[in-house]
Amino acid sequence: MDLALKIAAAAVLVLMLFYLWPAYKHWQENGPKAEKGDWQAAILPLGAVAALVVLLILAVR
């Protein structure tokens, strides 16, 4: 039962890869390119998320 479920989940995840591939190609070819300061603006909140996760880990230890 457990193995059958894992195989089914793996199959659906591989299917998901085929579903994501066109989206990836579209954004890679037609998506806007980052301008100066764009990555900084994205890394700032993502860094805050990482810091929050570290704080939560410290809270459960």
């Binding site: 994501l20 990836y24 579209h26 954004w27 890679q28 998506g31």
Partner: peptide, 20 residues
């Protein structure tokens, strides 16, 4: 911030495929 984060599209879709 009203910034356009569409430039992250290719990066996050590629990352998602690696994670899958």
């Amino acid at each position: 911030s009203k910034r356009d984060f569409s430039f992250m599209g290719g990066f996050i879709f590629a990352g998602m495929m690696v994670v899958i």
